[in-house]
Design a protein around this nucleic acid. Structure first.
Length: 307
DNA sequence: TAGATACCTTATAG
DNA sequence: ACTATAAGGTATC
């Protein structure tokens, strides 16, 4: 494995690896100690986190090319990485180390709730996950606890994904669209997906056949992109917003889940409208527009950890 | 177009 | 032990 380190203490806003990867944004990383999403906010302080991404030779697109193993851990103000390739740029991209957190915070309102959320998890960044895995994992997220969503992705990787062996260890790769499309509803139900099983299978089929790809949404205007993603089975507006925010660089996307809806009723009642689209517009504007999704993610993690 | 309901499975509360 | 309830919603009628 190749290795390197990134001085994250020099980044604008610093970095908090555990908050970034265990805040319910990504279900495509694992902790080497197996304690991902176990609820302990300290234990991941210097733990190794691992993922496998497919990266093209042109270094632009995820979800294409050969699997690359990436491991990271945060120690002594540095982000250490190990990988099957020279992964410095991959780590910077997947963890959005280029984001200017102070500028983002400055662009969002200065209310009590946001201050508390930003203060508590300062250094948390959004992730930039591969589009297909993000699409599938958030289809699985419907009416599901965070820890179980993560388990389901791991189960699919073990059942249908490729393996990569490095230094005597075996890593699982998230299944390709072809691999998931070939799975049966029954096999997916056996993994605990419940009613989401046919959604996952049919969406994978749409991507595998070339009928549509989540990456296609990238070229559209935000609301158009959100609508475009709802063509996938099991994808409504909320899941579409998650894919836009956590994978496709639409930092203005604000997924309206149960937590945020409760928050809106309590803290931003004037933004509570009678449709998803209308409430979305109102809260997006209230949260400063361009980086509204960043504010949403801090609030989501903050409120969820209180419970 | 707006509103109500079913949906898998698991963990937790009572 | 047993039942009710809810978990980052969506599809269908």
């Amino acid at each position: 494995m190749e290795a390197g380190r990134i001085d994250v203490s020099a980044l604008a806003g610093g970095f908090d690896l555990q908050a970034t990867l265990e805040s319910g944004q990504s279900y495509l990383w694992q902790r080497a100690d197996g304690r991902m999403y176990d609820g302990d906010e300290q234990s991941g302080g210097d733990a190794w986190y691992e993922t496998v991404v497919r990266v093209d030779d042109d270094r632009i697109r995820l979800d294409a090319g050969d699997p690359v193993v990436v491991r990271v851990r945060q120690r002594d103000g540095a982000l250490e990485w190990e990988s099957t390739t020279d992964a410095d740029w991959i780590v910077r991209s997947l963890l959005r180390l280029e984001d200017d957190l102070p500028a983002i915070r400055a662009a969002t309102p200065d209310d009590r709730l946001l201050d508390a959320a930003f203060d508590r998890y300062w250094g948390m960044r959004l992730v930039r996950d591969p589009p297909f895995g993000t699409l599938i994992s958030f289809i699985c997220s419907a009416q599901m606890r965070v820890s179980r969503i993560h388990e389901m992705q791991l189960a699919m990787a073990e059942a249908f994904g490729d393996t990569v062996a490095v230094d005597g260890r075996t890593y699982r790769v998230f299944p390709t669209p072809d691999q998931l499309a070939a799975a049966t509803e029954s096999e997916l139900r056996d993994l605990g997906l419940g009613y989401r099983a046919p959604y996952v299978q049919r969406t994978a089929e749409m991507v595998a056949s070339g009928e549509a790809h989540p990456d296609d949404a990238r070229d559209r205007a935000y609301e158009d992109a959100r609508e475009h993603l709802t063509q996938f089975v099991g994808v409504g507006q909320k899941v579409a917003d998650c894919v836009l925010l956590f994978s496709l660089d639409f930092l203005e996307a604000v997924p309206l889940d149960t937590w945020i809806q409760t928050t809106i009723e309590e803290y931003y009642p004037d933004c509570d409208r009678d449709s998803y689209a209308a409430t979305s517009r109102a809260i997006r504007e209230r949260l400063g527009g361009e980086y509204a999704g960043y504010a949403q993610t801090y609030v989501f993690h903050h409120l969820r950890s209180e419970s």
